Amino acid sequence: MTQFIKTCPNCGQNLVEKLQNVDVKQDLKACYAESIPVLVCENPTCTNQEKYYSPFSFNLLKMKCPEINKW
């Protein structure tokens, strides 16, 4: 079983879970999903702007946007 990332790989600060709206564009199709849980770094001086999705978040995104088959 894979361990979820809980700390920022850049600065080591804990990641905070937030609900984000996701705009997915693939070819000519577009999907907008609201309230997808993601983990983000809260350190204002950190250069890491990545959003980390758990498998549950990714499955929720696929349910809301069934036209995406891979990210």
Rank of each mutant, 00 (worst) to 15 (best):
F56Q: 14
F56I: 10
K29F: 02
I36E: 05
D27T: 10
W71R: 12
P55A: 09
T2L: 02
I5S: 05
C46K: 04
M63S: 13
N14H: 05
E50Y: 07
K62F: 00
N14R: 03
K25S: 14
V38M: 13
S57E: 08
L60P: 00
E42D: 13
L28V: 12
P37C: 02
D23P: 00
M1T: 12
C46Q: 06
V24A: 12
S35G: 11
V38C: 09
M1Q: 06
F58D: 09
K29H: 06
Q13R: 14
N21P: 02
K6A: 11
Y52V: 02
N21H: 11
N43Y: 13
L15Q: 09
Q13N: 12
E17Y: 03
C41E: 09
D27N: 15
V40C: 05
Q20I: 13
L15H: 05
Y53W: 10
K64V: 02
S35M: 11
T47W: 03
L15G: 11
N48I: 00
P37H: 01
D27F: 04
Y32T: 08
C31K: 04
N69I: 07
K62A: 01
L15D: 08
N43K: 15
C11I: 08
S57A: 15
F4I: 10
V38I: 11
N43F: 10
L39G: 01
P37Q: 04
N48M: 00
L60C: 06
L19N: 14
V22E: 05
Q26Y: 13
S54W: 01
V38S: 05
A33G: 08
Q13A: 11
Q13W: 05
K18C: 02
N14C: 03
N10V: 08
N10Q: 13
